[in-house]
Design a protein around this nucleic acid. Structure first.
Lengths: 143, 143
DNA sequence: TATAAACTTAGAGTTAACTCTAAGGTCAAG
DNA sequence: CTTGACCTTAGAGTTAACTCTAAGTTTATA
């Protein structure tokens, strides 16, 4: 039986975060001492590790909550239930990546266009591009 | 001279956002009517468009604030000043992309490992992977 | 003149996931 | 029996960038 600090050490979460996850319904201490201390069993530890893993992959706290409800009652859920959550997450991630790649491309073009030296910014091509407001139409990257 | 609603239409911002940007020091109305209505000149419009462009590229409100302070006093700033901000932003973006690519790869592996069908989740390999907690070590992607 | 659209302000609410604080109780070691 | 590490709670604060509300004023149009 571990106390919250030990669980924290073991999982790499903080005690604060574990209590926050408890409020969010993700992690529960199977036992409490008379004085109120949380005590975690091996089963609790495994659940906490599941949470940590799922969060690290990028699932939201809400997603993890859903995944846990499947986990405790696997026979009443299907692989489809699980892949749906995973696929939705992958779609989110793909979309964010697309946005960021666009930003990346634009930023690279801006950087390529500017000397970056100690010259006055009076004719800085980055500033000019931001003013021209077609800075958002990146074409072929001059790699 | 445009009123705030017209500037909003012109820039694709909302009037709310324009007022928020005013509080943040990004956009100012050159004039106010006696009753307090904001009136925007062509110069103001150009600045608002600059802000919109910079925000769309991914610069934070804080970054835009800095870029604007360079913009109004170009001769006292250098190309280096501008590229530094841009490079920092690119670094941020690159880092986020890396994180997301890792997530993407993990999620793809998970999806590949699971049938996704109407079978019971009792032996779902996604659930097993999350439990195994080495789900975070993606190797070569089985594309 | 009446109405509706547009404007004003200060300030609160939203989102996600923590993160921290205050004020106090518990426990093991010396 | 004291010290210090660890624990408890409720609740507030953080971050970024909006987004919205309420209550009232102004302006243009019919």
């Amino acid at each position: 039986m571990l106390r919250i600090g030990e669980l924290a050490t073991k999982t790499g979460l903080t005690a604060h975060t574990i209590r926050f996850y408890e409020k969010s319904g993700l992690i529960n201490a199977s036992q409490r001492s008379e004085s109120g201390y949380r005590y975690y069993t091996d089963t609790d530890v495994r659940q906490a590790e599941f949470v940590k893993t799922a969060r690290k992959i990028g699932f939201s706290v809400d997603d993890v909550s859903t995944l846990l409800s499947i986990r405790v009652d696997k026979s009443n859920h299907t692989c489809q239930d699980v892949t749906e959550i995973t696929q939705r997450k992958l779609n989110d991630v793909n979309e964010k990546i697309s946005e960021l790649l666009l930003m990346q491309q634009t930023l690279k073009i801006l950087l390529n266009s500017c000397c970056g030296g100690p010259e006055s910014a009076t004719h800085c091509s980055i500033m000019e591009a931001l003013d021209a407001s077609n800075a958002l139409k990146p074409r072929i990257v001059a790699e």
